[in-house]
Nucleic acid binder design. Structure first.
Lengths: 212, 212
DNA sequence: TAGATTGTTAATCGATTAACAATC
DNA sequence: TAGATTGTTAATCGATTAACAATC
């Protein structure tokens, strides 16, 4: 029904949200697109265009109320509703995630952790106990989580994703180096650390070339 | 001197590299832009345009030799040269990184790990001992690392980055939630896990709207 | 040679920036 | 009211796709 918002805009939303959160914590009440643009290093035009994809949140001659806009972006992102999430694979990255990430602040509620390794099953992580992956089906049926964080080895990533899909999970945060097969009714965010390293490597190499 | 390649193209390079690596391990010798485009879910035109930013790696009527192209992209990315990297901050994420990431394959060589926490200093991680952050200056002077992985708390991220900059480090892989101040002679890759979570949250919320 | 597929130019599409009337 | 700044339309810019001549 609604005209869908371009992915370029979506990618910038969390960054706006972060900056506004910072302004808020600094006690700044209002901000103009011009000042925000200077802080963020983008154009004021882009900020106004981006925000107007979702509605008019500002006021002519005044700018934007920081607290209000912060709240509105939270609503746009869907952070006001906490989706249930499970973590599949307690590797180092999976483990690190549970410790570092404030899921609650980013729209999620971690409700279950799974692994196949007997050494890990039973471990306490945060306020949760690592469960046997064999129990995941009944768990999902009972709890109906929306999202799964995939932190399993590359070789089994697609198989696990398919199993979870069949159990009803249609959203993935994918840390595995595998590329998940695309499906129309599934949303995925990939975090490929290796790709980031390679891009950085490229940038360093380019810079060095220029200097020589 | 060279016309610089657009960042849209750069972003795709690691993905090409991954796909080619996979083809290589499958024993596939040659591939046309058409077939690769189908596998990757992009257009053949885009693949040819992207590659031709760097040179003509294919052959009319034949396509691309997988092994050759794989090697060429590695060169473009700079993976053939191993830049020395240090890890600053042995939080969970920092620790996880050292275990999971095959730095060698992505252009880097991890040569030092630093923290300020006495409990962590002296720990053995991989083949390295965690050193006191106080010693980092002399270490950098001796080893001349190119890149630093910043895995420190948000509050000190910019301060640490500035210190490292003054010691000569001009490339950062930033895991901290802070946004590093931009400098002309510094290259940065940011990994903001929180942003990925929020984007996923947005996508889930949008999907749910459509279904209602 | 005929067929296939590249490299490259031209056409299209989308995203960003600029401009300005509306309005607080 | 005058000044500031938005929301929005128009202009520009860049990236993607299509087309095709070159060539293996």
């Amino acid at each position: 029904m609604e005209k869908s918002v371009s992915s370029s805009v979506i990618k910038r939303l969390p960054r706006y949200y972060r900056y506004l959160g910072e302004l808020l914590s600094l006690g700044i009440e209002r901000i103009s697109s011009k000042e925000l643009s200077q802080r963020m290093g983008i154009t004021a035009s882009q900020i106004r265009q981006d925000l107007n994809c979702f509605g008019g949140f500002g006021q002519q001659g005044y700018g934007y109320n920081v607290e209000y806009l912060y709240g509105e972006i939270a609503k746009i992102l869907g952070l006001d509703f906490k989706y249930k999430a499970i973590l599949v694979g307690v590797g180092n990255i999976g483990h690190a995630l549970t410790q570092n990430t404030n899921f609650e602040k980013r729209g999620f509620n971690l409700v279950g952790i799974f692994d196949t390794d007997p050494q890990k099953i039973g471990m306490k992580i945060q306020n949760l106990t690592v469960l046997d992956y064999k129990e995941i089906k009944s768990f999902i049926e009972a709890e109906c989580p929306t999202m799964a964080i995939l932190s399993v080895p590359r070789a089994v990533a697609n198989q696990v994703a398919n199993e979870l899909y069949d159990m009803g999970i249609k959203a993935f945060l994918n840390f595995s180096y595998a590329e998940l097969a695309k499906r129309d009714d599934v949303v995925v965010e990939n975090i490929h650390l290796g790709d980031s390293l390679m891009r950085l490597c490229y940038k360093i190499s380019e810079k060095n070339k220029d200097e020589v």
